[in-house]
Protein backbone atom coordinates (compact mmCIF):
# COMPACT_ATOMS: atom_id res chain seq x y z
CA UNK A 1 0.00 0.00 0.00
CA UNK A 2 1.16 3.53 -0.72
CA UNK A 3 2.42 5.56 2.22
CA UNK A 4 -0.02 8.37 1.48
CA UNK A 5 -2.99 5.98 1.48
CA UNK A 6 -1.86 4.67 4.85
CA UNK A 7 -1.75 8.14 6.32
CA UNK A 8 -5.24 8.95 5.03
CA UNK A 9 -6.48 5.65 6.42
CA UNK A 10 -5.13 6.46 9.87
CA UNK A 11 -7.48 9.46 9.95
CA UNK A 12 -10.31 6.97 10.44
CA UNK A 13 -9.56 6.49 14.11
CA UNK A 14 -9.49 10.19 14.93
CA UNK A 15 -13.20 10.44 15.96
CA UNK A 16 -12.84 7.54 18.40
CA UNK A 17 -9.60 8.91 19.83
CA UNK A 18 -11.15 12.35 20.31
CA UNK A 19 -13.97 10.80 22.35
CA UNK A 20 -11.51 8.85 24.49
CA UNK A 21 -9.34 11.87 25.14
CA UNK A 22 -12.26 14.15 25.97
CA UNK A 23 -14.30 11.81 28.15
CA UNK A 24 -11.82 9.33 29.60
CA UNK A 25 -8.21 10.54 29.47
CA UNK A 26 -8.76 14.22 30.26
CA UNK A 27 -11.16 13.46 33.16
CA UNK A 28 -8.67 10.90 34.42
CA UNK A 29 -5.82 13.45 34.55
CA UNK A 30 -8.19 15.89 36.24
CA UNK A 31 -9.04 13.12 38.71
CA UNK A 32 -5.39 12.79 39.65
CA UNK A 33 -5.22 16.57 40.19
CA UNK A 34 -8.44 16.70 42.25
CA UNK A 35 -7.21 13.81 44.40
CA UNK A 36 -4.52 16.13 45.80
CA UNK A 37 -7.05 18.81 46.84
CA UNK A 38 -9.65 19.30 49.55
CA UNK A 39 -12.31 20.34 46.98
CA UNK A 40 -15.91 19.81 48.18
CA UNK A 41 -17.39 19.30 44.72
CA UNK A 42 -19.04 22.65 44.02
CA UNK A 43 -17.29 25.67 45.54
CA UNK A 44 -14.69 27.69 43.61
CA UNK A 45 -12.26 27.67 46.52
CA UNK A 46 -10.06 24.71 47.30
CA UNK A 47 -6.44 24.11 48.07
CA UNK A 48 -3.84 21.50 47.33
CA UNK A 49 -3.22 19.33 50.36
CA UNK A 50 -0.53 17.01 49.00
CA UNK A 51 -0.89 13.37 49.95
CA UNK A 52 -3.37 14.01 52.78
CA UNK A 53 -6.25 12.23 51.01
CA UNK A 54 -4.06 9.19 50.32
CA UNK A 55 -2.92 9.07 53.96
CA UNK A 56 -6.53 9.43 55.06
CA UNK A 57 -7.49 6.54 52.76
CA UNK A 58 -5.21 4.09 54.57
CA UNK A 59 -6.41 5.23 58.00
CA UNK A 60 -10.13 5.26 57.12
CA UNK A 61 -11.77 2.15 58.60
CA UNK A 62 -14.90 2.57 56.44
CA UNK A 63 -12.95 2.83 53.20
CA UNK A 64 -10.65 -0.07 54.10
CA UNK A 65 -13.79 -2.07 54.89
CA UNK A 66 -15.13 -1.19 51.44
CA UNK A 67 -11.79 -2.33 49.98
CA UNK A 68 -12.09 -5.71 51.73
CA UNK A 69 -15.70 -6.01 50.52
CA UNK A 70 -14.57 -5.20 46.96
CA UNK A 71 -12.07 -8.06 47.16
CA UNK A 72 -14.79 -10.42 48.41
CA UNK A 73 -17.21 -9.27 45.68
CA UNK A 74 -14.50 -9.62 43.02
CA UNK A 75 -12.63 -12.78 43.95
CA UNK A 76 -15.57 -14.56 45.60
CA UNK A 77 -17.66 -14.09 42.47
CA UNK A 78 -14.82 -15.08 40.14
CA UNK A 79 -13.95 -18.32 41.93
CA UNK A 80 -17.53 -19.59 42.18
CA UNK A 81 -18.60 -18.33 38.74
CA UNK A 82 -15.75 -20.22 37.09
CA UNK A 83 -16.13 -23.50 38.95
CA UNK A 84 -19.90 -23.46 38.57
CA UNK A 85 -19.72 -22.15 35.00
CA UNK A 86 -17.34 -24.97 34.03
CA UNK A 87 -19.57 -27.53 35.75
CA UNK A 88 -22.61 -26.21 33.87
CA UNK A 89 -20.69 -26.21 30.59
CA UNK A 90 -19.56 -29.83 31.07
CA UNK A 91 -23.14 -30.76 31.92
CA UNK A 92 -24.60 -28.96 28.90
CA UNK A 93 -21.92 -30.30 26.57
CA UNK A 94 -23.66 -33.69 26.67
CA UNK A 95 -26.83 -34.20 24.69
CA UNK A 96 -30.16 -34.48 26.51
CA UNK A 97 -33.69 -33.17 26.08
CA UNK A 98 -34.28 -29.67 27.37
CA UNK A 99 -30.61 -28.77 27.11
CA UNK A 100 -31.25 -25.50 25.28
CA UNK A 101 -33.88 -24.52 27.86
CA UNK A 102 -31.37 -24.98 30.68
CA UNK A 103 -28.80 -22.90 28.80
CA UNK A 104 -31.32 -20.10 28.12
CA UNK A 105 -32.52 -19.98 31.73
CA UNK A 106 -28.98 -19.75 33.11
CA UNK A 107 -27.86 -17.14 30.58
CA UNK A 108 -30.99 -14.93 30.56
CA UNK A 109 -30.19 -12.94 33.75
CA UNK A 110 -26.97 -11.68 32.09
CA UNK A 111 -29.24 -9.46 29.95
CA UNK A 112 -31.14 -7.96 32.89
CA UNK A 113 -29.95 -4.64 34.33
CA UNK A 114 -28.08 -5.44 37.57
CA UNK A 115 -30.01 -2.71 39.33
CA UNK A 116 -33.34 -4.36 38.47
CA UNK A 117 -31.87 -7.75 39.36
CA UNK A 118 -31.09 -6.29 42.77
CA UNK A 119 -34.70 -5.14 43.18
CA UNK A 120 -36.04 -8.53 42.09
CA UNK A 121 -33.78 -10.18 44.66
CA UNK A 122 -35.16 -7.80 47.28
CA UNK A 123 -38.49 -9.66 46.94
CA UNK A 124 -36.64 -12.84 47.93
CA UNK A 125 -34.47 -11.58 50.79
CA UNK A 126 -36.98 -9.11 52.33
CA UNK A 127 -37.75 -9.75 56.02
CA UNK A 128 -41.54 -9.29 55.81
CA UNK A 129 -43.07 -11.67 53.31
CA UNK A 130 -39.78 -12.32 51.49
CA UNK A 131 -39.78 -15.53 49.48
CA UNK A 132 -36.81 -17.05 51.33
CA UNK A 133 -38.37 -16.39 54.74
CA UNK A 134 -41.61 -17.94 53.49
CA UNK A 135 -39.67 -21.13 52.82
CA UNK A 136 -38.03 -20.96 56.27
CA UNK A 137 -41.43 -20.59 57.95
CA UNK A 138 -42.80 -23.45 55.85
CA UNK A 139 -40.07 -25.71 57.25
CA UNK A 140 -40.79 -24.55 60.82
CA UNK A 141 -37.82 -22.18 61.17
CA UNK A 142 -37.91 -18.58 62.37
CA UNK A 143 -37.65 -15.89 59.67
CA UNK A 144 -34.26 -14.17 59.36
CA UNK A 145 -33.54 -10.52 58.58
CA UNK A 146 -31.01 -11.52 55.93
CA UNK A 147 -29.61 -8.10 55.04
CA UNK A 148 -29.35 -6.72 58.58
CA UNK A 149 -25.75 -7.83 59.17
CA UNK A 150 -22.94 -6.48 57.00
CA UNK A 151 -20.86 -9.63 56.45
CA UNK A 152 -23.89 -11.76 55.67
CA UNK A 153 -25.28 -9.12 53.31
CA UNK A 154 -21.91 -8.99 51.51
CA UNK A 155 -22.01 -12.76 50.99
CA UNK A 156 -25.62 -12.64 49.80
CA UNK A 157 -24.84 -9.91 47.28
CA UNK A 158 -21.80 -11.86 46.06
CA UNK A 159 -24.12 -14.82 45.59
CA UNK A 160 -26.62 -12.67 43.67
CA UNK A 161 -23.82 -11.45 41.39
CA UNK A 162 -22.76 -15.07 40.83
CA UNK A 163 -26.29 -16.18 40.05
CA UNK A 164 -26.77 -13.34 37.59
CA UNK A 165 -23.50 -13.68 35.68
CA UNK A 166 -22.50 -17.36 35.89
CA UNK A 167 -23.97 -17.62 32.37
CA UNK A 168 -21.03 -15.65 30.96
CA UNK A 169 -18.41 -18.17 32.04
CA UNK A 170 -20.76 -21.00 31.09
CA UNK A 171 -21.05 -19.93 27.43
CA UNK A 172 -17.32 -19.19 27.19
CA UNK A 173 -16.51 -22.68 28.50
CA UNK A 174 -19.14 -24.27 26.27
CA UNK A 175 -17.53 -22.66 23.22
CA UNK A 176 -14.12 -23.80 24.48
CA UNK A 177 -15.31 -27.39 25.01
CA UNK A 178 -16.80 -27.56 21.54
CA UNK A 179 -13.39 -26.68 20.08
CA UNK A 180 -11.70 -29.73 21.63
CA UNK A 181 -11.52 -32.50 19.01
CA UNK A 182 -13.48 -35.62 20.00
CA UNK A 183 -10.61 -37.88 18.86
CA UNK A 184 -8.40 -36.82 21.78
CA UNK A 185 -10.91 -38.37 24.15
CA UNK A 186 -11.26 -41.45 21.96
CA UNK A 187 -7.50 -41.97 21.92
CA UNK A 188 -7.36 -41.51 25.70
CA UNK A 189 -10.10 -44.05 26.38
CA UNK A 190 -8.37 -46.60 24.14
CA UNK A 191 -5.27 -46.05 26.29
CA UNK A 192 -7.41 -46.71 29.37
CA UNK A 193 -7.42 -43.16 30.77
CA UNK A 194 -10.42 -42.69 33.07
CA UNK A 195 -12.84 -39.73 33.03
CA UNK A 196 -10.93 -37.74 35.65
CA UNK A 197 -7.65 -38.31 33.80
CA UNK A 198 -9.24 -37.12 30.55
CA UNK A 199 -10.53 -34.00 32.29
CA UNK A 200 -7.16 -33.26 33.86
CA UNK A 201 -4.90 -33.98 30.89
CA UNK A 202 -7.11 -33.02 27.92
CA UNK A 203 -10.01 -30.76 28.91
CA UNK A 204 -8.32 -28.41 31.39
CA UNK A 205 -5.14 -27.66 29.40
CA UNK A 206 -7.06 -27.08 26.17
CA UNK A 207 -9.54 -24.83 27.98
CA UNK A 208 -6.77 -22.52 29.27
CA UNK A 209 -7.54 -19.64 26.86
CA UNK A 210 -11.24 -19.84 27.79
CA UNK A 211 -10.40 -19.93 31.51
CA UNK A 212 -8.20 -16.89 31.11
CA UNK A 213 -10.97 -14.88 29.37
CA UNK A 214 -13.67 -15.94 31.81
CA UNK A 215 -11.55 -15.20 34.89
CA UNK A 216 -10.58 -11.73 33.69
CA UNK A 217 -14.14 -10.82 32.65
CA UNK A 218 -15.65 -12.04 35.94
CA UNK A 219 -12.98 -10.39 38.03
CA UNK A 220 -13.37 -6.97 36.42
CA UNK A 221 -17.16 -7.29 36.71
CA UNK A 222 -17.04 -8.29 40.37
CA UNK A 223 -14.50 -5.66 41.40
CA UNK A 224 -16.72 -2.96 39.84
CA UNK A 225 -19.86 -4.15 41.67
CA UNK A 226 -22.17 -1.16 42.11
CA UNK A 227 -25.79 -1.57 40.94
CA UNK A 228 -26.73 -4.56 43.12
CA UNK A 229 -25.39 -2.82 46.24
CA UNK A 230 -27.29 0.37 45.41
CA UNK A 231 -30.51 -1.60 44.92
CA UNK A 232 -30.27 -3.75 48.05
CA UNK A 233 -28.38 -1.96 50.83
CA UNK A 234 -26.96 1.33 49.43
CA UNK A 235 -23.82 0.39 51.40
CA UNK A 236 -25.55 -0.06 54.74
CA UNK A 237 -26.11 -0.96 57.50
CA UNK A 238 -23.58 1.74 58.39
CA UNK A 239 -20.76 1.38 55.88
CA UNK A 240 -20.61 -2.41 56.15
CA UNK A 241 -21.52 -3.42 52.58
CA UNK A 242 -19.93 -0.61 50.54
CA UNK A 243 -17.64 -1.46 47.64
CA UNK A 244 -15.01 1.02 46.46
CA UNK A 245 -17.36 2.07 43.62
CA UNK A 246 -20.28 2.89 45.90
CA UNK A 247 -17.86 4.60 48.30
CA UNK A 248 -16.74 6.96 45.50
CA UNK A 249 -20.29 8.16 44.89
CA UNK A 250 -21.09 8.26 48.58
CA UNK A 251 -18.12 10.53 49.34
CA UNK A 252 -18.83 12.79 46.38
CA UNK A 253 -22.58 13.27 46.39
CA UNK A 254 -23.45 12.60 50.03
CA UNK A 255 -20.26 13.45 51.87
CA UNK A 256 -19.22 16.34 49.59
CA UNK A 257 -15.59 15.29 49.78
CA UNK A 258 -14.86 15.43 46.04
CA UNK A 259 -11.10 15.43 46.55
CA UNK A 260 -11.19 12.35 48.77
CA UNK A 261 -13.70 10.68 46.46
CA UNK A 262 -11.32 11.21 43.52
CA UNK A 263 -8.55 9.60 45.60
CA UNK A 264 -10.69 6.49 46.17
CA UNK A 265 -11.42 6.45 42.42
CA UNK A 266 -7.75 6.63 41.46
CA UNK A 267 -6.93 3.90 43.98
CA UNK A 268 -9.69 1.69 42.53
CA UNK A 269 -8.30 2.23 39.04
CA UNK A 270 -4.73 1.34 40.06
CA UNK A 271 -5.90 -1.70 42.02
CA UNK A 272 -7.99 -3.12 39.15
CA UNK A 273 -5.15 -2.45 36.66
CA UNK A 274 -2.59 -4.29 38.82
CA UNK A 275 -4.85 -7.25 39.55
CA UNK A 276 -5.94 -7.75 35.94
CA UNK A 277 -2.36 -7.41 34.67
CA UNK A 278 -1.13 -10.06 37.11
CA UNK A 279 -3.95 -12.40 36.10
CA UNK A 280 -3.45 -11.88 32.36
CA UNK A 281 0.32 -12.50 32.69
CA UNK A 282 -0.23 -15.59 34.83
CA UNK A 283 -2.54 -17.14 32.23
CA UNK A 284 -0.31 -16.13 29.30
CA UNK A 285 2.53 -18.02 30.96
CA UNK A 286 0.28 -21.00 31.65
CA UNK A 287 -0.86 -21.13 28.02
CA UNK A 288 2.74 -21.17 26.81
CA UNK A 289 3.73 -23.92 29.27
CA UNK A 290 0.92 -26.16 28.08
Amino acid sequence: MKVKTKHIMNLFYIPALLLFVAFVVYPFTQGIRISFTNWNGYSQAYKYIGLDNYIRFFKDKNVLGAFVNTIIYGFGSTIVQNILGLAYALFLNSKFTGRSVVRAVIYMPVMIASLIMGYIMYFLVQYDGGAINDLLILFGKAPVDLMSQGPRAVLIMTLINILQFVGISMVIYLAGLQNIPEMYYEAASIDGVNAWGQFKYITLPLLMPAISSAVVLNLIGGLKLFDIIMALTAGGPGYSTHSLSTMVTNMYFRGQHAGYSATIGIFTFIFIMIVSNIIVRYFDKKEVEM
Binding site: Y26, F28, G31, I34, S245, Y252, S261, G265, I272
Partner: peptide
Protein backbone atom coordinates in the same frame (compact mmCIF):
# COMPACT_ATOMS: atom_id res chain seq x y z
CA UNK B 1 -10.04 -1.44 31.72
CA UNK B 2 -10.91 1.95 33.25
CA UNK B 3 -13.56 1.38 35.94
CA UNK B 4 -16.20 4.04 35.10
CA UNK B 5 -16.69 5.16 38.68
CA UNK B 6 -12.99 5.77 39.22
CA UNK B 7 -13.30 8.91 37.08
CA UNK B 8 -16.80 9.88 38.20
CA UNK B 9 -15.81 13.07 40.02
CA UNK B 10 -13.81 14.67 37.18
CA UNK B 11 -16.16 13.38 34.48
Amino acid sequence: MVPPLSILVPL
